[in-house]
Design a protein around this nucleic acid. Structure first.
Length: 269
DNA sequence: CCCTGAACCTGACCGC
DNA sequence: TGCGGTCAGGTTCAGG
């Protein structure tokens, strides 16, 4: 479900309700996520949430004595509910705050993760080797050009590799490549300098626009306030079973690394 | 080091 | 209605 824009939308949605608030209690109804939910998570009562950051698709909650590292996996979502609201199916974690609101984590497929670390979260095994943030300066055309030399993988696989750049998932990889005019199957080392420039620019633009619109709602992604994201209307190729909106030729659908890719063979080379 | 494919889960949808 | 097959927004891990 969530790529970087959806995670960032979630972060912005929950932050006003949680920042500088004291944790009253945490209930874990099902520990069986990608890895078992850290036992410390249920011992956080009395601590205050100092900040909520994001690294790639990971949310980082600073609770003073350490950090919660939270990943939404494929089907995870968060919502804020009031004290009286009941729990729905697949809502595995409740974090009840002293101000009367509860943060609820729902994750039908349970590919998400909720871990606690007392150490520097950026040195955690899951975060340590991540590539640059796509919206920051250190991800740029020079970087993309350098990192793509000697790589024979299709460019789409490369930009979806979190060790290369974080946050670019299956939807936005296809969309960015369309805007850059590059076929997803092109071998990474065969990108010219100008292609790298177009692609790094496109990734930044697409992600920023998606954040602005509150992410993409396909099936089950809803924002923390329950509203959908509105980037779906802006998608050009992902999920497009018809023709290219730009040139009218059919959109092609292929499988790469077991993931769906969509592209226009005329607009993209 | 690079790359591929399997694995982890549940649910929605489609064709029969 | 029901059943089986396919697919789904992510990421790690084993193995070639």
């Amino acid at each position: 479900m969530p790529e970087l824009p959806e995670v960032e939308t979630t972060r912005r949605g929950i932050s006003p309700h949680l920042l500088q608030q004291r944790i009253k209690s945490v209930h874990v109804y099902d520990h069986r996520l990608r890895w078992p939910v850290s036992p410390e998570i249920e011992q956080l009562s009395g601590l205050t949430i100092n900040s909520i950051g994001r690294r790639g698709k990971y949310l980082l909650l600073d609770v003073g004595s350490g950090h919660i590292i939270w990943h939404l996996g494929m089907s995870g979502s968060m919502r804020i509910k009031s004290a009286s609201e009941p729990n729905f199916y697949h809502e595995h974690i409740d974090m009840e705050m002293a101000n009367g609101v509860t943060l609820t984590y729902r994750d039908p497929r349970r590919f998400g993760a909720c871990l606690f670390t007392a150490d520097d979260p950026f040195q955690h095994k899951l975060l340590r080797d991540l590539g640059p943030e796509p919206l920051l300066e250190d991800f740029n055309s020079d970087y993309l050009y350098q990192v793509s030399r000697n790589r024979r993988v299709p460019i789409k696989n490369l930009i979806m590799n979190s060790h290369v750049v974080v946050g670019v998932g299956n939807i936005y990889a296809s969309e960015s490549l369309f805007r850059a005019g590059i076929r997803p199957g092109r071998a990474a080392y065969r990108l010219s300098r100008s292609m790298c420039e177009r692609l790094s620019d496109s990734i930044k633009e697409i992600l920023a626009e998606a954040i602005e619109k509150g992410g993409t709602t396909l099936q089950d992604f809803t924002r923390s306030d329950g509203k959908p994201g509105y980037f779906k209307q802006a998608l050009q190729v992902y999920g497009n079973q018809g023709d290219c909106y730009t040139c009218g030729n059919p959109i092609r659908h292929i499988t790469q690394a077991n993931r769906s890719s969509y592209y226009c063979a005329v607009c993209q080379r």
